[in-house]
């Protein structure tokens, strides 16, 4: 069975966290990814950029509507995800608008910050 582990936590800047806490967190995440990799259960992981970089789109009214900011509607729940690798936000919006889910819901486009390659965190280009 494939499971997706969704991480929810308060958004804090590097300055707010402090270098020590940040380093502890990075080490913990590196160890966790390596452990999952070793156990042969890791299919992929992403740590996303903060919500200020997020864009939401929907085509529910038959027309593409684009909004600045993260998804914020408690009636809708997260139902799935796609990870795509494209040049810029316009390309990402283009693909998101074609997602069938955009017709009956909302698609949030959040740029990635780091992702795992063979269990090792790698910054996004």
């Amino acid at each position: 069975m494939r499971y997706t582990l969704l991480l929810h936590y308060p958004e804090m800047t590097a300055e707010e966290l402090g270098e020590e806490v940040l380093d502890q967190g990075k080490a913990a995440m590196a160890g966790y990814a390596a452990t999952l990799q070793q156990a042969g259960v890791l299919l992929g992981a992403e740590v996303l950029q903060p919500s200020h970089a997020s864009t939401t789109v929907t085509t529910r009214d038959g027309k593409l509507r684009i909004q600045d900011g993260p998804f914020a509607d408690s009636r809708e729940q997260m139902g799935g995800y796609f990870v795509i690798d494209v040049a810029d936000l316009d390309a990402a919006i283009g693909w998101a608008a074609q997602a069938p889910g955009a017709q009956w819901g909302t698609v949030e486009i959040r740029p990635g910050a780091v992702h795992t390659v063979d269990g090792v965190w790698t910054p996004n280009a």
Partner: peptide, 13 residues
């Protein structure tokens, strides 16, 4: 500043 960070981080072309 938020808008400009957004342009950079979300890679608005």
């Amino acid at each position: 500043v938020r808008a400009k960070r957004r342009i950079r981080d979300a890679r608005i072309p």
